[in-house]
Design a protein around this nucleic acid. Structure first.
Lengths: 243, 243
DNA sequence: CGCTTATTTGATAACGATCAACTAAAGTGG
DNA sequence: CCACTTTAGTTGATCGTTATCAAATAAGCG
């Protein structure tokens, strides 16, 4: 397999301050075990399973979710290009949630067993990984605050703004439009709202001229008002500090 | 300062599989910069600040929370002995939440700048840190599922069972009783419920003989029924897999 | 002994869930 | 090629869980 480290790999993105050494590059090549291409609807990782793989999303989008005993589904977050998947399983030994593709996806696969080698031999990459974990933890904390303290319209405004930011950062924005190939049910499950109420709330935002989401495309027409509605503190783009 | 690595430090707890080397022990000593003792009500870390410190909780309890612009407060989680605090600030450069002591607390303080040294010189400890971050991320995911998919009585049952488990693991259990020195308002803010409804729901659990929480002590009388009520999948104790 | 904080309880209101039905688009198979 | 099915989105009506308001009790505490 001829390859350089994946172009969209977060381990690469985060490395702008600490460039790869030749040794690291060759290690990355051995760390990567292959690319995975999946169709929409495919379950990439299954709750309770013991996956030997870690992944990086190279393209496509998906959902990370838990299923409760009563059948209800909670989408923990959406997966976008550049996201890292499976660190929990990689490090804890068992998946605590499932991952499903919403679009065709290509993923960069790593061997879990190589994680330890990474830590031993490439502390800068290990630090990158922990940085990623810390950033993710931060977003989960914000999600908790949304579910706990925001009402329906605030939650949806918050989600749309954050998703827009994320996709913009991933370079997928064109004139305030970003691709958002999920169903309303997915957003509802992410925000703890019913499908019906999610639909009606989206209609409200639409009729107010704030945001439009249809045919897999999200367009934010008034980000300032949306951010204000959602009580979002203007967040500087995440950027890793120099070591 | 004469010291060994703190007894309750998670970096020590998690190291049962990879014991400290003499070199590491001496590093831990230099890594630790001191102990912090604070009174109830003290804000240990403030949202938006740029703390140069990381902490480990040695004793006492506290809350980790965010405050929204409208003044509402979301408790992200409770802090118990053994918990690690400030990794986000340590690695991202800025606190995204506040930390406040609910009881007198003693904390073990580390210099943030030493984190990188830790990664470079002690990969096993760095791996421990990432393990901790992954476990925390898992719990946040479960919290999201609770806020999104469980109703009031399920949320409270879930929280009480999880808290009980956590305190038991910390060795604070005595005959199904654990210390829980928080206010009902804290639990309400953690679960996204109003104080009034939290109070009424606790009463329901009490009258059903399932759980009793008063005077800072939580007693679970019927854990099986509570876990069933909360739809908790029986979770094996978190234990780090061998490398 | 007033003052504050935490808990408790009842009454009322509202936000969002649930139920039901309909439209539109996209397969699918005979 | 057209019934038939399935999936996603939309809308209206009703119900219920939970928030909000109000007030009372009780426990520290200067």
């Amino acid at each position: 397999m001829t390859m350089t480290a994946c172009k969209n790999c977060p381990l690469r993105q985060k490395s702008m301050f600490t460039p790869f050494t030749q040794d690291e590059l060759s290690f990355m090549q051995s760390f990567k075990t292959g690319e995975l291409k999946v169709d929409p609807g495919t379950t990439i990782l299954l709750e309770g399973s013991n996956s030997p793989q870690l992944y990086t999303v190279l393209s496509g989008m998906g959902t990370r979710y838990k299923t409760l005993e009563n059948g209800r589904r909670q989408v923990i977050n959406f997966l976008f290009p550049g996201d890292f998947v499976g660190l929990q399983a990689g490090i804890m030994g068992e998946m605590k949630h499932s991952v499903e593709a919403s679009t065709p996806m290509t993923l960069c696969a790593f061997r879990r067993d190589d994680l330890w080698t990474l830590f031993r031999q490439h502390p800068a990459r290990a630090y990158d990984l922990t940085w990623i974990a810390a950033v993710e933890e931060h977003f989960l904390g914000e999600t908790i605050a949304s579910l706990g303290q925001r009402d329906a319209i605030q939650r949806i405004a918050w989600a749309l703004v954050r998703i827009h930011e994320r996709l913009k950062a991933a370079g997928l924005q064109k004139a305030n439009r970003v691709p958002l190939p999920f169903r309303q049910q997915d957003l509802a499950d992410a925000l703890g709202l019913s499908l019906v109420h999610t639909n009606k709330t989206l209609k409200t935002l639409r009729s107010k001229g704030l945001a439009q989401w249809s045919d897999g495309t999200l367009e934010l027409r008034d980000i300032a008002t949306l951010a204000d509605l959602a009580m979002i503190d203007p967040e500087r783009p995440q950027q890793r500090p120099l070591l």
